[in-house]
Simulated scan of single mutants.
Amino acid sequence: MTTNFKSGFIAIIGRPNVGKSTFMNKVIGQKIAIMSDKPQTTRNKIQGVLTQKDAQMVFIDTPGIHKPKHRLGDFMVRIAENTLNEVDAILFMIDAKEGYGKGDQYILDRLNQVKRPVYLIINKIDLIHPDDLFPLIEQYRVKYNFEEIIPISALKGNNVEPLLDVLKGHLPEGPRYYPEDQVTDHPERFIISELIREKVLQLTKEEIPHSVTVLIENIETRESNAIFIQATIITERKTQKGILIGRQGSMLKNIGKSARKDIEALLGTKVYLELWVKVKKDWRNRQSQLKEYGYRDDDY
């Protein structure tokens, strides 16, 4: 460690679907947060660790702040808002194409209660004309005293490195919190369940909303170091179960095939994946089942 080694925790907040997980994965260099074109994809806060020779930045990808419609939604918003008081800096990310909305004002009102430096990150600049960027900057500049306003494209990587340099320059001197080769604080079981859930969101489109969660029932290493994983997809209604299974099991097979590729990339070995589907009626509003499925307030 150099004498001027810097470290700190950085929260990424914003409305749903502004590209927080895409940014996290780009910075870390591999997929640790799932991505979907549907809002509210992230449910727990996910920490990604970027270690450089002179700094370690721990990014916290939070659930999108939104008006909750069920207990799971309440949990997601609490996680996002509680994170703001635990970090060294906050990245408030917006979608350049969507522009300012009521959801942004809701977040800005909460940021006014937080004594942390806030950076406005205008994401998806590759989707707008350059002439539209300056008016957007001015619109937000008058609403909050941002530390800096930085336009980026998380998907393309535009301006991401300069953003990291800015953050590093403002972080305090501190220790290396995680080993050099560690990229997340979440166990493999969590990431595997998230990768399976991502494929459900991607492959079922609008037919299955966010009424699913994934439980990893068993992971074990067998012959030739192959890893066998058994997982259950939980949904709320029998009709949703039918869609998830598909005709002659076709949908479930596609979900498993697609998820297995990402899991093999994550683990670096051959994976056998068995999936089941179970119905747990109204699980998103049942406190006991939320805790059973890993959504625990006392963890945060």
Rank of each mutant, 00 (worst) to 15 (best):
M1C: 05
T3R: 00
F5T: 09
K6N: 06
G8P: 04
A11D: 00
I13C: 05
G14L: 00
P16D: 06
K20S: 02
T22E: 04
T22M: 09
T22W: 05
F23A: 13
N25W: 05
K26M: 07
I32C: 15
M35G: 03
S36G: 13
Q40W: 13
Q40I: 04
Q40E: 09
T41P: 01
I46S: 03
G48V: 12
V49E: 01
V49L: 02
L50F: 09
Q52I: 03
Q52K: 06
D54N: 15
D54F: 07
Q56F: 06
I60G: 01
T62W: 03
P63E: 09
I65R: 11
H66S: 13
H66M: 13
D74E: 13
M76V: 07
V77W: 03
R78P: 05
I79G: 00
I79T: 15
A80E: 04
A80P: 14
N85T: 07
N85P: 02
V87Y: 03
V87M: 14
I90K: 02
I90H: 02
M93E: 07
A96M: 13
A96S: 15
K97M: 12
E98S: 08
Y100V: 08
Y100S: 11
G101K: 12
G101C: 13
K102Y: 00
D104S: 06
I107A: 02
D109S: 14
D109N: 13
R110N: 02
L111D: 04
N112A: 12
Q113C: 05
Y119A: 05
L127P: 07
H129D: 10
H129W: 06
P135I: 07
L136Y: 04
Q139K: 15
K143S: 12
K143Y: 04
K143D: 03
Y144E: 11
Y144S: 12
N145H: 08
E148K: 15
I150Q: 05
I150E: 11
P151S: 15
A154N: 01
G157T: 09
V160M: 14
E161Y: 08
P162L: 13
V166K: 10
L167T: 01
H170L: 04
H170N: 12
L171P: 01
P175T: 07
Y178Q: 08
P179T: 09
Q182S: 10
D185E: 11
D185Y: 02
E188M: 11
R189I: 12
F190Y: 06
F190H: 00
S193I: 09
E194A: 07
E198R: 15
Q202H: 04
H210E: 11
H210V: 10
V214R: 02
I216Y: 10
I219R: 03
R222T: 06
E223K: 14
N225E: 15
A226E: 14
E236R: 01
R237D: 02
R237N: 02
G242S: 14
I243C: 08
R247G: 04
G249Y: 12
G249D: 09
L252A: 00
I255K: 03
K257E: 12
S258T: 10
A259R: 07
A259K: 10
R260Q: 11
D262Q: 10
I263T: 06
E264Y: 08
K270F: 08
E274P: 00
E274N: 13
D282A: 02
W283R: 09
W283K: 14
Q289Y: 08
G294Q: 06
G294V: 14
Y295Q: 03
D297Y: 11
D297W: 11
Y300I: 15
